[in-house]
């Protein structure tokens, strides 16, 4: 990798100040997206601002009818959070499926969401639950946050502090793992919170995570796999690579959505 200066702030304010002084700098959370890219010399940040000592941005808390997760909470800690497993096991399953145990030991929710890899798992959960991404500057609805692959609503110098997930009575994630990378070849998150029904898909779309309005509409009658029987999504706009054709990805969206619905209703 290219060389850089290394900084370890202890507050969000300090971190923001460091970013302001280093316009080509990058935040380092768990490092499991950024460091591999830097090792391949595909990114050349002038400064690395390591968030691991920043106080107050870790942990999983139940706040009223929402679960609030600190941006620097590691995947393993979210997956194993007793409170989350109790109120919304469907969300806990998402970090539990990311990468491998060592990646889950280091990777963080904030890092994953900020990166918005088109095959990452967390974006599906955020969009599939209508989460709110809370930064040092504002609150951003998930529907506005994810703006295409590796692109988000984050502005320069903006730091994700927490993510707030409304607790849904029914929620589940179903993932077909990419056989090499462990990312989602296709992943589908479904949820039902009162009248709000969401189906969010990662891995499949050429433009990153997306919702499936036709499925959501059909599920309004009854939140069950049967309701989307026979519904398909078009292959156009799906990713194409050696591991999966657009047709196959489109097909998997339907299969995984049904499996997720069965899981959510179980």
């Amino acid at each position: 990798m290219y060389n850089f200066t290394f900084h370890r702030p202890t507050t969000v304010r300090q971190a923001a100040g460091l970013l302001a002084r280093n316009p080509d700098g990058k935040l380092l959370a768990g490092g499991h997206s950024l460091l591999p890219v830097m090792k391949q010399r595909l990114a050349q940040p002038s400064a690395i601002v390591d968030l691991s000592l920043v106080e107050g941005i870790t942990g999983v808390e139940l706040k009223g009818r929402s679960v609030s997760i600190g941006a620097m909470t590691r995947h393993a800690d979210v997956a194993n959070s007793p409170v989350l497993k109790e109120v919304m096991p469907g969300l806990a399953a998402v970090p539990g499926s990311i990468g491998d145990p060592q990646v889950r030991n280091r990777g963080t929710i904030g890092g994953s969401i900020a990166n918005n890899d088109p095959n990452a798992d967390y974006p599906a959960a955020c969009l599939g639950l209508g989460a709110t991404i809370i930064t040092n500057k504002r609150r951003i609805a998930a529907d506005d946050f994810f703006q295409g692959m590796f692109t988000t609503a984050l502005e320069e110098g903006e730091i994700i502090v927490r993510i707030s997930f409304p607790v849904a009575k029914k929620a589940a994630y179903e993932k077909f793992k990419h056989p090499a990378s462990g990312f989602a070849l296709v992943g589908v998150f479904v949820s039902k919170r009162g009248p709000d029904i969401r189906v969010a898909v990662t891995g499949a779309g050429a433009n990153g995570v997306f919702r499936v309005p036709t499925f959501e509409e059909a599920l309004k009658k009854r939140f069950a796999a049967k309701s989307i029987e026979g519904l398909t999504i078009p292959a156009s706009g799906m990713n194409a690579d050696i591991h999966a054709s657009p047709e196959y990805r489109a097909h998997l969206v339907g299969v995984l959505a049904k499996r997720a619905l069965n899981k959510a209703n179980a």
Partner: peptide, 8 residues
Amino acid sequence: AAKACTTL
């Protein structure tokens, strides 16, 4: 457990 190749 962590991957020492993905840690500074």
